[in-house]
Computed example of a mutant assay.
Amino acid sequence: MNRRQKIGSAVTALAVAGALGLAAAPAAQSHGYIGGSNSQLIARAAMPGNTGLGAVQYEPQSIEGPKGFPAQGPADGTLASGGNTRFSELDQQSSTRWVKNQVTNRTVDVAWNYTALHATTKWEYYITKPGWNQNAPLTRSSLELIKTVPYNGALPVQGEKHTLTIPADRTGYHVIYAVWVVDNTTNAFYNTIDVTIQ
């Protein structure tokens, strides 16, 4: 074998080893979404009947973006995707675009379906304000905080519920925006939940 053949064989061997290494590497960690077995609500990304979801239909647990909402985090108009361009279909907003969860009580339980546990700072839940524009991109100015659940860096518990109280002046179509703030990274997970409140 001449020198050129030896180099070619070595390059081929490295390429094969690299490909095998990539094949054996674990997939990107998955994380969680609203829609656990104890949840009365399901996030937009996982809601049965929603179509045209793109890549997020295969990984509704991966809507991750910079934390610090509302001062930081995803830009207005990209809140539903968490600012993640792979999931930009979620940012489409109109009164008829998404299947709605039906809410008949002023209190509702939500639970996350965790596919990987992360040390948690807190969860925050927002809801759209009265008179919000249902046919415009979702913005932080259209949301108000209704619940904070502090967690002090512990790992979340699968099936744990958070009880939300829907303000008395909300009826019809609204969006609940859920933020799971990870304690030991710079990111959070963002979930948009479409509801019709009776």
Rank of each mutant, 00 (worst) to 15 (best):
R44S: 06
T107S: 15
E124F: 01
T78H: 15
L14E: 04
T115F: 12
G82A: 02
G35W: 11
Q93E: 09
M47I: 02
I127L: 06
Q72N: 12
E89N: 15
N84V: 00
T121H: 11
N101M: 07
E59H: 07
Y125A: 12
W112C: 03
L41D: 09
A13V: 14
G65M: 11
W98G: 05
Q40E: 14
S30R: 15
W123A: 00
L79R: 14
E89H: 03
K122N: 12
L22P: 02
D109H: 06
D76C: 07
W112P: 00
G49H: 11
Y33M: 03
R44N: 07
K122Y: 09
E124I: 04
W123G: 01
M47D: 04
S62T: 10
T51I: 14
A43N: 14
V103L: 05
Q72W: 08
A119T: 14
L20I: 15
G68Y: 10
T78P: 00
A28D: 12
G83K: 04
T120A: 02
S88M: 00
L90M: 07
W112V: 14
F69A: 04
E124N: 13
F69R: 01
A15M: 13
K67Q: 13
A24C: 05
T12Y: 11
G49K: 13
Q72L: 14
T85E: 03
P66W: 06
G49Q: 10
T78V: 08
K100M: 13
T78W: 06
Q61S: 15
N113T: 04
W98M: 01
R44Q: 10
G21H: 10
T104F: 11
A15C: 14
S62R: 14
Q40W: 04
T120M: 08
A15H: 05
A116H: 14
D91A: 04
V103P: 05
G73W: 03
M47F: 04
A45D: 03
L79W: 12
S95C: 06
